[in-house]
């Protein structure tokens, strides 16, 4: 299958390793990956903070970049949730305000082909074992958008359980928010920090070496506290775990030139 990657603005800028891992996994599974270069941002930050006018132009940009793709894969639940929950309404609004009348239909046609990375593997491809190897103790954080908006269920855990060598340890209060919430973490920093400290405590209680998730936004938040507290526990996007194999592990051990971050 020809898969178009929507990397998302913050993964592009801050977490390129996640994008590379997505490419690795998809190519390993025999798919062709393309990267429409005009892509930027889904508009979530603006839309959710109340800047709807500013978010609107990002919809036609996304549609024109991706409407010819067979499938669009996005390594971020919250960006996919943004599209599924708000793009139809945004298209309505653009049309109502005299914008491109075709946008309503084009958006509706495109959205069913947009997948969050883990759900693309489990739901679209019907896979749980993608041939990964990762000999570590890992806990999974369910992001709110993945859990509630996309209904990922235990799909990500099934993928992780199929990884050779990986020991998946369950976190307490899985469904509880880490307190990120986009600009919430800045606007309500004190409450956000209080929520975060519960989440990091839950992560530490699992005894895991790493915490993974389908969203780097939550992970950046959790990692921020884990690092500040010098806990030594790392966070890593699920794609990076699934990209790891015995072969890549061996290559990494011998070849010190490749810079992944």
């Amino acid at each position: 299958m020809k898969v178009a990657l929507f990397i998302t603005c913050y993964n592009d800028t801050l977490f390129p390793a996640t994008g590379k891992a997505v490419v690795d996994v998809l190519e390993r599974l025999g798919h062709t990956v393309e990267f429409p270069p005009g892509q930027t941002c889904c508009g979530q930050m603006h839309w959710n903070t109340g800047y709807q006018v500013e978010a609107l132009p990002l919809l036609p940009r996304f549609v024109s970049q991706f409407e010819h793709a067979e499938a669009v894969v996005v390594p971020s639940s919250s960006c996919v949730a943004m599209m599924r929950e708000h793009y139809p309404m945004m298209a309505e609004r653009i049309v109502a305000e005299g914008g491109d009348a075709t946008l309503r239909q084009r958006t509706a046609a495109l959205l069913p082909r947009v997948w969050e990375f883990s759900e693309f593997l489990t739901k679209k491809l019907g896979l749980t074992d993608v041939g990964a190897y990762y000999p570590h103790r890992v806990t999974y954080h369910a992001s709110c958008h993945g859990l509630r908006s996309l209904g990922l269920g235990d799909g990500p855990q099934k993928l992780l359980n199929a990884v050779r060598g990986l020991e998946l340890v369950e976190i307490a209060n899985l469904e509880q928010c880490c307190g990120f919430g986009g600009t919430f973490a800045v606007k309500n920093a004190d409450v956000s920090s209080a929520m975060l400290s519960e989440k990091t405590r839950a992560v530490l209680n699992t005894g895991a070496e790493e915490c993974t998730a389908c969203d780097n936004s939550c992970l950046m938040h959790i990692q921020g506290a884990l690092h500040r507290q010098r806990t030594g526990v790392m966070t890593r996007h699920i794609a990076e775990i699934l990209a790891n194999t015995e072969a890549s592990e061996a290559a990494n051990d011998t070849d010190g030139t490749e810079v992944t971050l």
């Binding site: 801050l14 973490a185 800045v186 606007k187 309500n188 920093a189 004190d190 956000s192 920090s193 975060l196 400290s197 950046m220 938040h221 990692q223 921020g224 506290a225 690092h227 500040r228």
Partner: peptide, 9 residues
């Protein structure tokens, strides 16, 4: 507000 309790990579 972010860096009161968290680092940023």
């Amino acid at each position: 507000g972010w860096t009161d309790t968290r680092d940023l990579q």
